[in-house]
Design a protein around this nucleic acid. Sequence first.
DNA 1: TCTCTATTTTCATTGCAGGAAAATAATTTG
DNA 2: CAAATTATTTTCCTGCAATGAAAATAGAGA
Lengths: 196, 196
Amino acid sequence: MLSETLSNELETYRIGEKLRSLRSEKGLGLAQLGEHTGLSAGMLSKIERGQIFPTLPTLLRVSLVFGVGLEHFFTAPETPILEVTRRKDRLRLPDDPNAAPTYLFESLDYPVSERPMEAFLSEFLPRRKASRPHRHPGMELVHVISGTLELGIHGKQVKLEEGDALTFDADHDHTYRCTSEKSCQAFVVTTPAKPG
Amino acid sequence: MLSETLSNELETYRIGEKLRSLRSEKGLGLAQLGEHTGLSAGMLSKIERGQIFPTLPTLLRVSLVFGVGLEHFFTAPETPILEVTRRKDRLRLPDDPNAAPTYLFESLDYPVSERPMEAFLSEFLPRRKASRPHRHPGMELVHVISGTLELGIHGKQVKLEEGDALTFDADHDHTYRCTSEKSCQAFVVTTPAKPG
DNA sequence: TCTCTATTTTCATTGCAGGAAAATAATTTG
DNA sequence: CAAATTATTTTCCTGCAATGAAAATAGAGA
């Protein structure tokens, strides 16, 4: 008999749903698809409803009719990216775990895989000294939400006030320092390394 | 009975070969894999040799053991890029199909899809006037193999002699002109647009 | 309500996946 | 080289799950 777990696991591929999508996209009825594939309407119904698992030859028949490869039924459909992160769910990390932090940051888009950008909400703490210099490939944009921030980059000190934004090549050492009495909130976006 | 064409088509997925690869990578015997999957060695052999097509539950069992999704068996394996272009096979195109050409170029890597670079062998012809200005995203590198070449870029005229190389941001208008009596051979590489 | 169409379910059939074990091939060992 | 051991392939058979045919149900017009 067909094991329960095996069956459940297979169902995660949603083979039936995918077949039904293909069919309804083309506006075909079960019987019509049956004619094209040489399969019975009844069986197609059962496959779509997940009551049976088609054999590979059977699955191939419908694949051929719809002009898709078998991988169509085994790969996750490309869903438009849509990820929400709530404040309470986000992890707040210090810039330096081994010393008194200069700032804290939390990723705003950590659930997005292969992201073409990374966005952080950072809180820079009032300090005499700037943060440790660091660099990373790509560009960086800093938008100050509240407080004032001094950025050391390309040998310059750039003072940012509320509402100011700065974009720079992040592949040179840069530092941050909060210059306001209260901490400085900022929105930071980085892009990964460019090819070439 | 299982149709001939259907069977042939299914064989193009090389399910058996993929299974055998997975197994030999891990250095498992048929019997050992059988223990892990709960399948008989004999049947695994038949599947690997393409004598039978496994049912989805069966295929899923081995998938689970090897930690791959079912799509593994239905997608083309990523083969390392390896493409050769021979001089005689390459197409030699003029820079301007509607006028007397300033140079001729041939792609050295046209078979490579989604290439992170494009390489050309170019022959610049002796001319009074430079080629028409053009631009394209990304970087460009020019390495002179023979003859001399004058490049107009960023408002400068750069003279290149044999062995010289120039790299520049190609997203500004640039021109070429051969300044030697005989034509100038050069190796040109461009990178596509950078993201961001 | 009746008719027509599409889908789902029931029931019976069977083709083929799959197991057990024998046969063969490949390796190892003395 | 044999003999022994291990791995693989093949043979034969069985069972069951996929499949088809057709009845039952649901839906859509009219």
